[in-house]
């Protein structure tokens, strides 16, 4: 059992180690390097208040007001911050039963999330229940493998969104889990589930080649990995070509330090996920270097195949 004090101690030592190995970024010419800080959550499941002090697993942890304070602090320190969520915003506390997700979405908007994706539990009050709360969002929900054209969600989701920070183009897209067997069919009638690995390949190709993104992030609600052949973040990472980071959800996997996998070209793909209920905020820094000559980029694109 872990109390708050030992948890804090571990985190402090982790922070010390982190400081020692941190990249001496500031010593480089400012325009040569750009740092992009990605903050992420997943499966917050309506956990608006922190866990009670007598919770056996997460005593006193979590809570939106604390998360917001931490996000604000990081935003003061870092220039280029993206705040992302990998789905299952809804369901898990009476806040959802009583207000249908209104408060969750209003608070995420107050925290200025940049984008999110949809999890299976976000359909717990049906497509209608999700659509009803979406006016409380000031950021897009991204999904590229659900065909929602025959549902009330038609026109209300985006496949991807591009962010530009100091001339670095960051493409973010979302993929969802197969709802079959997870959510009562009447809750998602008309929605068509397409293969997420294939949808991710198409979308990330568009982001890389057509939209000229320098960094590509997938918000996935597929789950980290499975003993069988089901699509998962690990399957996606290995089969992908253009994705740099997969922010996962669904399996409630607590990944303290994101895992590095290698794609079909042998390039790094990071997989991150931070358990559930908002007890931890994921933070990943990408340092990008400006290419001086166009030649370099041409070489690079050739290696993409």
């Amino acid at each position: 059992m872990q109390n708050r004090r030992t948890f804090l101690k571990q985190m402090t030592s982790a922070a010390a180690a982190y400081g020692m190995v941190s990249w001496p970024f500031e010593t480089f010419a400012a325009d040569e390097f750009v740092k992009i800080t990605v903050l992420h959550t997943n499966d917050v499941h309506s956990h608006i208040d922190p866990f009670p002090e007598n919770d056996p697993k997460y005593p006193g942890l979590g809570g939106v007001a604390y998360r917001h304070a931490l996000i604000n602090k990081i935003r003061e320190q870092e220039k280029n911050v993206l705040l992302l969520d990998a789905g299952d915003i809804f369901q898990g506390t009476p806040y959802f039963n009583m207000f249908g997700g209104e408060l969750e979405m209003k608070l995420m908007s107050r925290m200025q999330y940049d984008a999110g994706t949809i999890g299976n539990h976000d359909f717990d009050n049906g497509v209608e229940g999700l659509v009803k709360q979406m006016p409380h969002l000031n950021f897009p929900l991204l999904n590229t493998n659900y065909d929602v054209s025959k549902t009330l969600l038609n026109g209300k989701l985006q496949p991807y969104k591009i962010f530009e920070k100091e001339h670095v183009r960051i493409g973010v897209f979302g993929i969802g889990v197969d709802l079959n067997g997870l959510v009562d069919k009447k809750m998602w009638q008309g929605l068509v589930y397409n293969d997420p690995i294939e949808s991710a390949a198409v979308t990330s190709h568009i982001l890389k080649k057509k939209e000229k993104c320098d960094l590509i992030i997938c918000l996935s609600h597929m789950g980290f990995k499975y003993p069988d052949q089901r699509p998962s973040d690990v399957v996606l990472a290995k089969q992908s070509l253009n994705i740099d980071l997969i922010i996962g959800g669904h399996s409630h996997t607590m990944i303290e330090t994101p895992y590095e996998y290698f794609n079909r070209d042998g390039k790094s793909v990071w997989i991150a996920q931070v358990g559930w209920a908002g007890v931890r905020l994921g933070k990943i820094d990408f340092i990008l270097r400006r290419k001086q000559e166009n030649f370099d980029k041409c070489q690079y694109s050739k290696s993409v195949e």
Partner: peptide, 13 residues
């Protein structure tokens, strides 16, 4: 114009 140079990963409780 930009290519990935280095990645730092961590999470904050």
């Amino acid at each position: 114009h930009y290519t990935l140079h280095h990645t730092k990963v961590s999470s904050v409780a």
